[in-house]
Design a protein around this nucleic acid. Structure first.
Lengths: 147, 147
DNA sequence: TCTAATCCCATTGACGCCCATAGTGCCCCA
DNA sequence: TGGGGCACTATGGGCGTCAATGGGATTAGA
């Protein structure tokens, strides 16, 4: 199964490293990568992460999708300046840099959340909060529709 | 027979495993799958479960939705981050993870309930309670209509 | 030279894979 | 028609493998 799915929380060790869940790691490695590309989400305190090909994919998505994007330069700046590569070591761990911590609020634990074609990195409580907000919104919407 | 029908309760063993009812298992295996896709129901303390094609089906409806709507993001998050694959072992058992327990309240026994195109996983007492609530509601409705 | 990143190895606990057994229903044959 | 045996399900458990984590040693960079 080659989709990023489900979520799990791992601990950051004394050296600031955290294991990428094997499930997710395998998908990236199967594509022949040992690096991850991480991008700060625009709307959420989370990072969108995937293999390096994610960069080009996001490039395309933004071009075609966002009617308010001002220029190609802006998009390129966003993708490159607000993104970062994360090297995985031999054991499949990444070091949690300030780049990650600042945007997410991560301190001691990291939640990895699947998003089909890529995955996200969250501070566990933030993830939980977002999860329940999403559930509430969807339940509400459903209730309106069935009325 | 390719519909999920009826309900039955199985015990969780010391290693946290539970047999998926053969009836249900056969349907999934006939479609060539050894994995299940589970999703936490929005309005019930139960999980909706089916073969991986269940996710594919949901994904398709997502694709056709408006990509700018917040609902699309919410749905994607709900389907992928709040969903999970459950691996069946050679004997057709799944391990009951915290992912299942938290949402359903399952501890020692699991009730599997058919729902036509998929099935549900319940904590037995919750299932029973829900069942009688549904019966009451239906009876009530019928009474109103015949008045 | 000192700090930080990288490589390598150890531990432990969980999970997958395998086989065993008891209970039950079904079929077939006497 | 009734009994024996076959087939299969649910359940229990042994054991090896692997993932997550911790930490020492070595290298690179400031």
């Amino acid at each position: 199964m080659n989709r990023f799915l489900g979520h799990m929380t791992n601990r950051i060790d004394a050296k600031g490293r955290v294991s990428v869940p094997a499930q997710f790691r395998l998908i990236v490695q199967a594509a022949g990568h040992t690096e991850l590309y991480a991008l700060r989400s625009l709307h959420l305190p989370a990072l969108d992460v995937g293999g390096p090909e994610l960069l080009t994919r996001f490039d395309k998505t933004l071009e075609s999708a966002d009617p308010f994007a001002e220029t190609a330069d802006d998009m390129s700046f966003y993708l490159h300046a607000d993104g970062s590569f994360l090297k995985m070591d031999a054991d499949g761990r990444i070091t949690v840099t300030d780049f990650l911590r600042e945007h997410t609020g991560i301190s001691t634990d990291v939640t990895f959340a699947g998003a089909n074609t890529h995955f996200q990195i969250w501070q566990p409580e933030q993830f939980e909060a977002h999860r329940s907000r999403v559930r509430t919104r969807l339940a509400e919407k459903r209730r309106q529709e069935t009325d």
